[in-house]
Design a protein around this nucleic acid. Structure first.
Length: 635
DNA sequence: GTAGGGTTAG
């Protein structure tokens, strides 16, 4: 029980929940005991009783003041108490009373936070006055609910109503941009309204430009900044990291530190993602050492786990996973996919069972990892079982990625016709990734006719893809369709398709050493080439024959071999062998898919040099050990 | 009373 104070003192002590306006207090008909109770319950944060008493007060025609109502509603929001919130709403409107816009806005916000947009809209429509807060609340609600058209519609109506938007409005509406064009229009509007220097608006703009893949525009917004804060820095760092521009992400992180901001978990998560993208295991490890001293953060832990997986370091990934104090569906999915991608499919499936046993429900992405593992382990029956039952068991509708795994499953098994049939019959449209998977299957199972068909499908979707042109031209050549092969080469020339220079890199003593075919800028290049030639000679003695089928067939014999001899991954592997102590794995990352010749080459090297060599190409991991690759020569 | 940044996908 509260001590009996004079009313004035109580009013002071419990201000936010004060029901006792002078008017109600001195109303001779008001049951003061009820008011006392209500006040006390509010004070004690006893929501159920406060609401119950409020009902009794309502019967006596007694209302609380706006401040009390607003605090009660805010409390309902924080507790997720939908039912109670609606009771307060009902009480606010009792006895024909019409609240001011301030209180209506809070009610509106309540429905928005509870994701009850229809009810928010009813209230919004009946509000006699709407100010910028009312409009922004609606925009924010529809944006969060991913109803972007509606959110933008509210902005238009708001303009029509003559209400001037503020920074809150723009940072809410930016997420609703449904195209780059809309984004640019909104950007103009922001500048017109003089809100482009607002840090909230700025960070939203950077974020949205980056989500639309326009990180350079995002950087312009960032670069105009005179004074910014940590979130703006984090937005640009994340933008670069998410757009596969790890170098710039790391550079901006350094600049941020120079500007006097010490990064937080969000900054470090992006740094970790940049390390993941660039396969910078050592730098990632440094960040790991740095963060284990700070309080744990689930998102950062997940990013760390992914970094170890994508750098091909499963030992550290597994121990990081074991040591995580808390694991969510993303942690499990990351580890499952990580195992499967690095060639440990059976372990991935075991982990999937542990995940279910731990009581977590797999999501869309988990199932992609699971089906990926099934297809790579050749477990056709399990694959089909999960594919057909995941909707029923986990509520996951099969999507394009799942279908891609199933096409891969069939392709790997050599059931190429079934794979094509599956692709044609599935509900979603096949994408480039799916066709590429099938192209890999055609290559392995030497089905040239189908390869030609598939390559054409890829070129329809990606007319600039050099690798596919080469493959198509070579497929024609192997089937003696010389004219077609010539035609493909002409098309390539006509379109000006240029080869993205293949490059491979390796991290050594906190430095990245990058190699490109024909590039002699590495200080040790002469030595590396000399050693590489020696190595190739030794390999040829044990039976290595350069495989020229991955080079365009318009070069003559020796030239073809030469263009293979110095492929960037061969240079990088050689450099790794020369620079790293015996027994240490050589980890290479490259920007293009590994070619068949380099694959054979590295397999043999792993045997005669007795080394674990890991090469990560843009889609696959290759762990070479004892002359065998984890991909089983299928990629 | 209304806004901003970080993690998993073939």
């Amino acid at each position: 029980m509260l001590p009996k104070f004079p009313m004035k003192s109580i009013l002071k002590a419990i201000r936010p929940y004060n029901v006792c306006t002078t008017q109600t207090l001195y109303n001779p008909s008001s049951p003061s005991a009820l008011i006392d109770d209500f006040t006390r319950f509010c004070y004690q944060r006893d929501l159920p009783r406060a609401i119950k008493t409020m009902g009794s007060l309502q019967k006596h025609g007694i209302r609380a003041d706006s401040i009390t109502y607003s605090e009660l509603i805010k409390y309902c929001i924080s507790r997720g108490a939908i039912k109670e919130g609606k009771l307060v709403h009902n009480h606010v409107y009792s006895n024909g009373y019409e609240p001011k816009v301030f209180l209506n806005n809070i009610l509106l916000n309540m429905y928005v936070k509870f994701e009850l947009l229809d009810e928010a809209l009813v209230l919004f429509d009946q509000m006699p006055d709407r100010n910028v807060v009312s409009w922004t609340t609606m925009i924010s609600g529809y944006s969060n609910g991913k109803l972007y058209v509606e959110a933008l519609g509210f902005l238009v109506l708001m303009f029509r109503d003559g209400v001037v938007p503020n920074g809150f409005t723009f940072s809410s509406v930016l997420r609703a941009c449904d195209s780059l064009g809309t984004l640019r229009q909104i950007h103009c509007s922001i500048v017109k309204n003089g809100l482009d220097s607002d840090v909230f608006v700025r960070s939203s703009m950077i974020d949205i430009y980056s989500k639309w893949g326009e990180i350079q525009s995002g950087f312009c917004v960032f670069d105009e900044m005179v004074t910014g804060d940590l979130v703006v820095w984090n937005s640009i760092i994340a933008g670069f990291a998410q757009n596969g521009n790890g170098d710039e992400a790391l550079e901006n992180f350094k600049d941020m530190k120079r500007a006097g901001f010490s990064g937080n978990h969000a900054s470090l998560t992006s740094v970790m993602r940049a390390c993941t993208g660039l396969a910078l295991l050592e730098l990632g490890r440094q960040v790991h050492v740095y963060v284990v001293k700070s309080p744990r953060d689930l998102i950062l832990d997940n990013a760390l786990l992914d970094m170890y997986c994508k750098c091909g370091n499963l030992e550290d990934a597994k121990s990081a996973f074991e040591l995580m104090p808390e694991k969510d569906v993303i942690s499990w999915s990351t580890m499952i996919s990580g195992l499967a991608q690095n060639g440990c499919s059976l372990e991935a499936l075991e982990l999937f069972h542990s995940m279910k046993a731990s009581g977590l429900t797999p999501n869309y992405i988990t199932m992609v990892g699971v089906l990926f593992a099934c297809s790579h382990a050749g477990l056709a029956d399990d694959g089909w079982f999960y594919f057909r039952s995941m909707k029923q068991f986990f509520g996951v509708d099969p999507g394009r990625e799942h279908c891609g795994c199933m096409a891969d499953l069939l392709g790997r098994a050599g059931k190429l016709d079934e794979a094509i049939k599956f692709i044609h019959e599935m509900e979603c449209e096949p994408d480039v990734v799916m066709w590429r998977t099938l192209l890999g299957a055609c290559r392995v199972h030497k089905n040239m006719d189908l390869a030609i068909y598939v390559a054409k499908q890829i070129l329809k979707l990606e007319p600039e893809d050099e690798g596919t042109y080469i493959l198509l031209s070579n497929a024609y050549a192997t089937t003696q369709r010389w004219e077609d092969a010539e035609e493909v080469r002409k098309t390539m020339k006509g379109k000006g398709v240029k080869k993205e220079p293949g490059s491979s890199w390796i991290e050594l003593n906190k430095q990245v050493h990058a190699f490109v075919l024909g590039d002699k800028s590495h200080p040790q290049i002469l030595n590396i080439v000399k050693e590489l030639n020696n190595l190739i000679r030794r390999l040829m003695e044990v039976g290595y024959v350069p495989d020229t089928s991955f080079v365009l067939h318009d070069l003559e014999g020796e030239q073809m071999e030469d263009s293979l001899r110095y492929h960037s991954e061969k240079l990088a592997v050689m450099f790794g062998l020369m620079s790293l102590p015996n027994g240490k794995p050589v980890r290479i990352m490259k920007n293009l898919r590994i070619c068949g010749d380099c694959h054979t080459f590295v397999k043999l090297v792993s045997k005669i040099e007795d080394r674990h060599i890991v090469i990560r190409d843009p889609v696959r991991y290759h762990h070479f050990k004892d002359g065998v690759c984890s991909c089983g020569d299928y990629w």
